[in-house]
């Protein structure tokens, strides 16, 4: 696996960096599918780069754009340091969701043309990224989207009618940021659709797949990740 950084031009001027993890053996003659890894509120930090590397090890070109670049570029925070946690919430407060979606569309456009890409692009996001993955599914031609414990999706369910690709949502049933009523709303609206898969994890709290986090649960994280890999392989290969 190799990694590099791409500079992606933003739609209305400026540019932002994106971390790219490239699987072994890919080349223009042996292209691979791409996955946009969408950050939590902690920026493109070690944890997120680790997720990119994990996807690369599974044969996907993984790219994680720095979505907080308009507020503060190249920010990397940890949930384990209280000041940084506070800073993360501050940045989240200043983050413009619409601009974020615009940047993700630019990322999608760029990585699609990568010399080693097979042209099939999916996305996968955690927390804030989970919501953005849902919105990217609603408002772009991304082929497959995966949202891990996305926050605030219940308020955006009307957008779901425009989902063209496939969507998978991992829902933590004890998520402190997604109350049971919101989860019910999501299930009632999105459940039963052919192109949407919902996975629920009883007794799991928010960020149960974040290694080193307070709510990390290795067993459920492995189940969720294996669902995701299978889903991405089915839809992007």
């Amino acid at each position: 696996m190799t990694n590099t950084t791409l500079t992606i031009p933003a739609k209305n001027g400026g540019s932002f960096d994106a971390y790219v993890a490239m699987p072994e053996g890919v080349s223009p003659d042996n292209p691979a599918p791409c996955v946009i890894v969408i950050q939590e509120i902690f920026g493109v930090n070690n944890g997120l780069r680790g997720k990119c590397n994990w996807l690369a090890s599974q044969g996907f070109i993984a790219i994680a754009p720095d979505l907080f670049w308009r507020v503060e570029p190249k920010i990397e925070l940890s949930d384990q340091i209280p000041e940084q946690l506070q800073r993360a919430f501050d940045l989240f407060g200043q983050f413009d969701i619409d601009k974020g979606i615009e940047d993700l569309k630019q990322t999608l456009h760029t990585i699609k043309g990568h010399a080693n890409s097979n042209g099939n692009v999916g996305c996968l996001g955690y927390c804030l990224g989970g919501k953005l993955a849902y919105l990217l599914a609603c408002h772009s031609d991304v082929k497959a989207s995966i949202g891990y414990y996305g926050v605030g999706i219940e308020n955006l369910l009307a957008d779901a009618k425009s989902i063209k690709g496939k969507l998978m949502l991992h829902i933590a049933e004890k998520d402190g940021f997604v109350p049971p009523e919101a989860q019910t709303q999501i299930r009632q609206t999105l459940g039963g659709r052919d192109n949407i898969v919902l996975h629920s994890y009883p007794d799991m709290d928010h960020a149960f797949t974040r290694e080193g986090g307070d709510n990390y649960d290795a067993g459920n994280a492995e189940i969720a990740d294996s669902h995701s890999i299978l889903f991405l392989k089915e839809n992007l290969s």
Partner: peptide
């Protein structure tokens, strides 16, 4: 160039090459 791997061009992203 990490995007085009020294080719100077990339696959067209509209028709996917």
């Amino acid at each position: 160039c990490p995007l085009c791997q020294k080719r100077g061009t990339i696959k067209c992203r509209i028709c996917n090459g």
